[in-house]
Design a protein around this nucleic acid. Structure first.
Length: 416
RNA sequence: CGGGGAUUAGCGCAGCUUGGUAGCGCGCCGCGUUCGGGACGCGGAGGUCGUGGGUUCAAAUCCCGCAUCCCCGACCA
């Protein structure tokens, strides 16, 4: 990507109204644009990050044997009435509208009901199970109060997966596999060591659900963490009975603020019963289908990552989800420098190394400032100075000092 | 939804107390000097002061309504 062709600009200041660190940095660096409270557009750089997170999540979900699909945003009222989740008294985040003919519709804040209903068309025998499906979709939630930048929006991107199993044992085994897969996701996006499986309320369906909580002061939850065991309990379910049950002692737990980046829970057969999804077993008897639901807030995850990884100069993206691996800055606008930088840009892109090429005719200081703000892992400088030495200058975003090396050495270093 | 704060140029802000038709910084345009950590000088463009009403000879400024944004709280199955 040539920066001269990117329409977004970095800026030095954003409104003091926008107090959350993630929104401040993402707006300054040109990753997101605020449309209204709790509603943000993803600009080219931001979209690349979103797509990178999605790619990682997609890989891990595919490894679980799940299939990707895409449900609709517009949802029908009668499905949600069947499960008693249509009324605003029971679900207070609905956006609702109506068709020209007057019938009411809802905008999806979750998809258990539509997916369960849809699968009635495809599941009738034990031979049809299990079914694991997932999607990436914008969820619409009419939050009373949006806050914390992209961490709690009214429109946000979520990966939601649903499992349909023939019995509790099979359900449990997939559920546990998903925990492993989620841990891999959080490791790969760089927040693994700060993210903990957390026992939380299971609602009406089971005693517990499980959350994946990432430690950050910008989070909305309070968890009690046992660091050695890597297990936490959400404050909302913290009782002495629960602690006994989990084999934890209160005095061994740290009270910490955290943001929920993932949530998985079991619906048992309650919802499938309500919606009439069942199957016929090998013995010819009708049996209930067990439903599990598994979410990762993709856009929230991006916000949490920014909260965790930044310094006074800007964002410090983890390598796996940075919008590019290399920020190539040419300094000096003479032909030798331009030709040499153009060539190295081509060398890198030909090797499928993602490069943001700063080919703008601006001063060095601005290029360095932007490279830091945008947070690309490696900054490479090509200038008269480097041309004389035959080496390029490489600086990691995380480090203060640059080192000189040959282009070959640098490419080799990237591969490791 | 309860409480508090805010809305003035593309962005960030001052001006309001004490009414007299708007200013600073950044950004943008032009010229020149600069050129490895967000350069400098000179010149320039750009604003019905969120919106609707009211008071007044006169309203960004005073009064009332509304909208939007932010924070704290409640909520987040």
């Amino acid at each position: 990507m040539r920066l001269s062709q990117l329409f977004t600009k970095t800026r030095k200041e954003v409104s003091t109204d926008e107090t959350s660190k993630n929104a401040q940095l993402l707006i300054k660096s040109g990753f997101i644009y605020k449309e209204m409270a709790g509603v943000y557009a993803f600009l080219p750089l931001g979209l690349i990050v979103i797509e990178k997170i999605k790619a990682i999540v997609r890989e891990e979900m595919d490894n679980l044997g799940a299939s990707e699909l895409s449900m609709t945003t517009i949802q029908s009222k009668d499905l949600w009435q069947k499960t008693d989740r249509w009324d605003d008294k029971n679900v207070d985040v609905w956006f609702k509208s109506e068709l020209k003919n007057g019938s009411e519709i809802g905008f999806g804040w979750s998809h258990e009901e539509p997916i369960t209903n849809m699968l009635r068309s495809y599941i009738s025998s034990y031979r049809d199970l299990p079914v694991y499906v997932y999607q990436f979709q914008n969820k619409l939630r009419n939050e009373l109060r949006a806050k914390s930048g992209i961490m709690r929006g009214r429109e946000f991107l979520m990966k939601d997966m649903y499992s349909f199993s023939s019995d509790e044992d099979k359900h449990k085994s997939f559920y546990d596999n998903t925990i492993t897969a989620y841990n891999k996701v959080f490791d790969r996006v760089g927040i693994g060591k700060d993210t903990f499986l957390t026992f939380a309320s299971g609602g009406a369906f089971t005693q517990f659900s499980h959350e994946f909580q990432t430690l950050t002061d910008s989070g909305e939850d309070v968890i009690y963490l046992h660091r050695q065991k890597k297990i936490a309990v959400n404050k909302e379910v913290l009782t002495s009975e629960v602690l006994d049950q989990l084999g934890l002692k209160r005095e061994e737990l740290e009270e910490l603020k955290a943001a929920e980046v993932g949530n998985i829970f079991s619906f048992g057969s309650i919802k499938t019963d309500q919606l009439g999804l069942s199957y016929v077993d090998v013995d010819g008897k009708t049996r209930p289908v067990i439903l599990g639901s598994y979410g990762i807030g993709i856009s929230r995850l991006m916000g949490v990552i920014v909260e965790l990884f930044s310094d006074e100069k800007g964002i410090v993206w983890p390598e796996n989800i940075a919008p590019a691996k290399v920020y190539l800055a040419r300094i000096g606008e003479n032909n030798e420098v331009i030709t040499s930088a153009d060539m190295f840009y081509k060398v890198l892109t030909d090797k499928n190394i993602e490069v943001i090429y700063d080919d703008r005719d601006i001063r060095a200081g601005e290029k360095f400032a932007d490279a830091d703000l945008i947070g690309i892992p490696y900054r490479v400088v090509i200038s008269d100075k480097t041309l004389k030495s035959g080496l390029i200058e490489v600086k990691r975003r995380k480090e203060k000092e640059s080192t000189n090396m040959s282009e070959k050495e640098f490419i080799k270093k990237l591969a490791t």
